[in-house]
Design a protein around this nucleic acid. Sequence first.
DNA 1: GATCATCCTGACCATTTGGTCAACACGCGG
DNA 2: CCGCGTGTTGACCAAATGGTCAGGATGATC
Lengths: 227, 227
Amino acid sequence: MTDVTETETVRPARQGGESNGATRERNEREILEAAERVFAQYGYRGASVQAIAEEAGLPKSNVLYYMGNKRGLYVRLLERMMARWNALLDDISVEDDPADVLEAFIRSKMQLSRQHPEGSRLFAAEILGGAPFLQGYLRGELRQWVQTRARIFEQWAERGLMDPVDPVWLIFLIWSATQHYADFEAQVLGITGKDEISDADVERITQFLTQVILKGCGVRPASATPG
Amino acid sequence: MTDVTETETVRPARQGGESNGATRERNEREILEAAERVFAQYGYRGASVQAIAEEAGLPKSNVLYYMGNKRGLYVRLLERMMARWNALLDDISVEDDPADVLEAFIRSKMQLSRQHPEGSRLFAAEILGGAPFLQGYLRGELRQWVQTRARIFEQWAERGLMDPVDPVWLIFLIWSATQHYADFEAQVLGITGKDEISDADVERITQFLTQVILKGCGVRPASATPG
DNA sequence: GATCATCCTGACCATTTGGTCAACACGCGG
DNA sequence: CCGCGTGTTGACCAAATGGTCAGGATGATC
């Protein structure tokens, strides 16, 4: 044991102080990202803490140290996703232009799927499995949000600004059409033969959806040149 | 053995002959149904053979006896679902009326989601996880099917029978909108407050989607009264 | 009544699961 | 130098995982 070429084994990334909670912040971020990928791919039951740990490049014990347990980690991810979702649901009014609102709606929803595909898939997997953790959210906040919007759509219809379509199903239509490109990405890629969905594709799809849906419910496109 | 109230312990469902393969048929059907539910809810990794067996009311060993192993059972379910899918994809021609074809497309896809919600969710979960078992199908058969249809849509557009929208994205739009009511059923129920989606609901949704999508891509509704 | 094909299933196995815990590393303020 | 708070992690655990297998049950056929 005189030859000392390998005294310490590997040494962990960083221990002890490192000023403030920088370590915690960094590791938590890493773990959350990894967990989002794994949960999105395998669902809650199918994902293993071990797999998440490997994806994050940490020992399993370390993941548990930061996140407590699997369930807590999962819930935290769901809440983060719901927060992102809520963030883009700003208020609208009857006075707004339907075309503007619908286009913004489609565009922002599309961007959410684009910027957080794993989060989108995580959400989808949760709903697919019967939404065991999100029942409350669906029947509460989200339901309220939908009803508020639906009311406005109805008023637009009364004012002749759009066809009298069922507003709830219209919202579902927009959700499904936009969500599709995150959740069913594998299908989209397989069929189109692409190996990724480019920014340009996203823009074209957004315009396609906007065009078809606005026209489909009788909304006149916003006049780009007023007067 | 004169008093015959409980001679044999419990007695399995049925053993031995039972004429032909009736037992096999019945048990396989039972297992496939149960497995479809469980896989749909938890995904491939998350589903356990034990859970499937309990759902089917059989010992785990029995499930393995009939199905060989988990993977084989899963693949068999996927293939069954693809067969159902293919069954409704009859051929269309450029000479057909776009409105008829699109409406039939939406309606049959909606019915598929309706009649086999678990199968739909199973398929969705598979795609969500990156389609590890369905890569071949997506890049082969399904891709061909989409391209054939797309060609026809383009020809319709050239003939002025519909707007020149991208046909592939139109197909994705219809898929996503219809699939949504199976895959996101929990969300739909949570938000609408219903406890099930009725036949009447399905009919209304079908008509809503038909109306919006046909109008949205400039297809004139089929003239119910010719002349 | 022996043979056979089919069916049934408890016991068992190696591996993986989520989770706990004690031991330890580190820097800082006393 | 001694705690102390924070971070790290291998060893360990009971339970569940997918899968095997031997032993037995049953009815049809010869």
